[in-house]
């Protein structure tokens, strides 16, 4: 069973069955950004701290950064985004994922908002 959590900066993080964490941006975030044209992902093997900039996302109009909700080592990146950055718009929480992490402490993400709490959060924005 997967458990997807959300940050106030509109990233999502999901604990996978193997204990890794997949990270991406929410549907709300992609709607705000508009057409995504470029995603800069970190190198596999890089250790990134929670709250640090892990990826850069560029839409037609603007650039934004993606911060990690937990500290971890990058074990896989979504190579498809290099040629198909529009996947972030069409499928933000599935095919448009950014990277997988081996987290220092996977349970840290349970402090984040669950789907219903995040839904309430964005309704107030």
């Amino acid at each position: 069973m997967s458990d997807t959590r959300f940050t106030e900066d509109h990233e999502w993080a999901r604990i996978e069955e193997d204990g890794s964490i997949t990270v991406g941006i929410s549907n709300y975030a992609q709607e705000q950004l508009g057409d995504v044209v470029y995603v800069e992902l970190p190198d596999v093997g890089k250790i990134i701290n929670a709250g640090a900039e892990a990826a850069v996302i560029e839409s037609v109009k603007a650039a934004g950064d993606v911060k990690l909700p937990v500290t971890g080592k990058v074990i896989e990146i979504n190579e498809r985004l290099a040629d198909e950055p529009e996947l972030v718009n069409s499928s933000p929480q599935d095919e448009g994922w950014f990277m997988k992490l081996e987290p220092e402490n996977a349970q840290a993400i349970t402090n984040l908002m669950d789907e219903s709490a995040y839904g309430e959060y964005i309704d107030k924005l």
Partner: peptide, 9 residues
Amino acid sequence: PVNYSRGII
């Protein structure tokens, strides 16, 4: 309006 439903591209 920055864009409408279909988006900038």
